[in-house]
């Protein structure tokens, strides 16, 4: 499968950015303060490349929320934060000084909530703009080495569709979450197998034809 064209990347960025905008609104309602969420870049990477970019020469574990989906195409979406960033995100959500032990206890629950909002907004935006429906599983919390997290199958484990192994690709975006002027950087990763990627490109092609007149 060839690389995504510049226009295909533009389309994906726009689909995801609309979702990011909606997520910012939902999170601002939850936290009762202005949230600036931006996703300045999108890259299409192999698992290895995505791991290297996220890990960035660090062995620090990452925390992630993962949501599998199927519909016109299947895959999974992950919101990934380095462990320290994840704890800081929780601290800001709680808006008060709390002991590290308490932060750690609440980390999973809080990150699941933020992840649920951001992932659903992005998947919802993709589905709406492509005119289809993506059925999402419940979000799950994962923690560990980035490499291990990204090695999981792209979608629900289905031998018929998930047999593409190394051909799977990851659409990776930075997610910059800011409150009160400080920003916390995480990653939004869309894991798609070969079949999922081909179907997504087909859906985008229909969208392109519709607006190209």
């Amino acid at each position: 499968m060839g690389a995504l064209s510049e226009f295909e990347q533009d389309m994906l960025r726009e689909l995801l950015n609309v979702g990011i905008g909606r997520a910012a609104y939902s999170l601002s309602r939850m936290l009762d303060e202005e949230i600036v969420l931006s996703a300045p870049f999108l890259k299409v990477l192999s698992r290895q490349e995505a791991t290297e970019l996220i890990q960035n020469d660090s062995d620090e574990p990452v925390a992630a929320v993962r949501q599998s989906f199927d519909g016109p195409f299947q895959g999974s979406a992950l919101l990934i934060y380095h462990e320290n960033t994840s704890l800081e995100l929780v601290r800001r959500m709680l808006k008060e000084e709390v002991p590290l032990a308490t932060l750690t206890e609440l980390e999973q629950e809080s990150l699941m909530e933020v992840g649920n909002v951001i992932l659903n907004a992005c998947l919802g935006s993709i589905a709406n703009m492509l005119g289809g429906e993506l059925r999402c599983d419940l979000p799950e919390y994962l923690k560990g080495r980035c490499e291990t997290l990204l090695q999981q199958p792209a979608g629900r484990v289905s031998p018929a569709l998930d047999g593409c192994g190394g051909s799977e690709c990851i659409l990776l975006m930075y997610v910059d979450f800011s409150t009160g002027g400080d920003s916390l950087k995480g990653y939004l990763a869309l894991l798609l197998d070969m079949v999922g990627m081909t179907r997504l490109r087909g859906e985008m092609s229909h969208l392109m034809e519709r607006y190209a007149g």
């Binding site: 909606r22 609104y25 601002s28 949230i35």
Partner: peptide, 9 residues
């Protein structure tokens, strides 16, 4: 135009 419909924005 924005999808970010926060009151402050």
């Amino acid at each position: 135009l924005t999808a970010n419909i926060q009151d402050k924005v």
